[in-house]
């Protein structure tokens, strides 16, 4: 087939393709064509959005399912059912499935959705379906954006507020030799902030990774980077018995690859 013939053939399949209503051969044909044809790709993307709108629903999230999923995140988890169950419960606690209190968080969410709706209305007049990516259009400099946002909010203020709350907990992370390497304040709601950090800088190929020990299993709280910054924030949850820091390859790992370089008990 000539390129034009392929294009016409694929074009006629785009609707069915977006609905997963083609057979495997046709799917392969469409997908190889899409790589080199921005026009067909744009049409498929638009159809996929329509399909997603069609398939969008207001079903509530299945409440028990997260426990199953959480239990499979760490592929090395032993097959011991009780342990998995305990860990799953801990994960559920981190996820915070209790109905959200109406407060600052909820307001921000509402504002975001309202903003999204308003932008959507404005964009519709301009370019059909260009609006679908509106809440994501600035995702390119993702990490930078996170950091800028943090800076704008005044890093440290939240940590100070956590310290001011009498129900906060302080966690001192110490190295194997007993040297104090970091102090973390954990707010009553389970958000942690790095107050002081004396970790040695790592080369760019490595990162510090923070873990919570929950029922003797490490759960990743996120990456601290090669030079952990004061006021870094993370979600500790309320079930952690200790915080651990390991050195990992840049990009992080699913589970600790070596012994922790610092450990601190979380006490009530």
């Amino acid at each position: 087939m000539s390129d034009d013939t392929v294009h016409d053939e694929v074009e006629s399949l785009l609707g069915a393709y977006a609905l997963d209503a083609v057979d495997d051969d046709e799917r392969a044909l469409v997908e190889s064509h899409l790589e080199g044809c921005p026009r067909c790709r744009a049409e498929v993307d638009a159809f996929m959005e329509v399909a997603a709108a069609l398939g969008n629903s207001i079903d509530p999230v299945p409440p028990e399912l997260w426990a199953r999923i959480g239990g499979r995140l760490d592929l090395s988890a032993p097959g011991d059912a009780t342990l998995l169950e305990i860990r799953a419960k801990a994960r559920q606690q981190i996820a915070g499935f209790a109905p959200r209190r109406v407060g600052a968080g909820a307001t921000a969410v509402a504002a975001r959705w309202q903003r999204r709706a308003m932008v959507a209305a404005a964009a519709a007049a301009a370019v059909a379906l260009a609006l679908v990516s509106l809440s994501l259009s600035n995702a390119n400099s993702r990490v930078d954006q996170l950091q800028a946002l943090a800076a704008a909010r005044g890093a440290g203020a939240a940590a100070q507020a956590a310290l001011a709350d009498p129900a906060h907990r302080l966690v001192e992370l110490r190295g194997p030799g007993g040297a104090q390497l970091a102090t973390v304040v954990v707010s009553p709601t389970g958000t942690g902030y790095l107050l002081a950090s004396h970790f040695a800088p790592l080369p760019g190929t490595q990162t510090y990774q923070l873990w919570a020990r929950i029922d003797s299993r490490p759960i990743s709280l996120g990456l601290l980077g090669p030079r952990p910054a004061r006021d870094a924030a993370f979600t500790v949850g309320t079930a952690a018995s200790a915080l651990l820091v390991t050195v990992e390859p840049a990009g992080g790992t699913v589970r600790p690859s070596g012994s922790p370089v610092a450990v601190g008990p979380v006490t009530a």
């Binding site: 398939g55 969008n56 629903s57 207001i58 079903d59 509530p60 999230v61 299945p62 399912l65 997260w66 999923i69 959480g70 995140l73 994960r91 981190i94 996820a95 915070g96 499935f97 990774q209 759960i219 990743s220 709280l221 996120g222 990456l223 993370f234 979600t235 949850g237 992080g252 790992t253 699913v254």
Partner: peptide, 18 residues
């Protein structure tokens, strides 16, 4: 590797996926 972020994705979109 922020599991709380994955949990939030699940909370926001799990119902629709399901």
């Amino acid at each position: 590797f922020r599991e709380d972020a994955l949990a939030e994705v699940y909370r926001r979109h799990g119902g629709a996926i399901y």
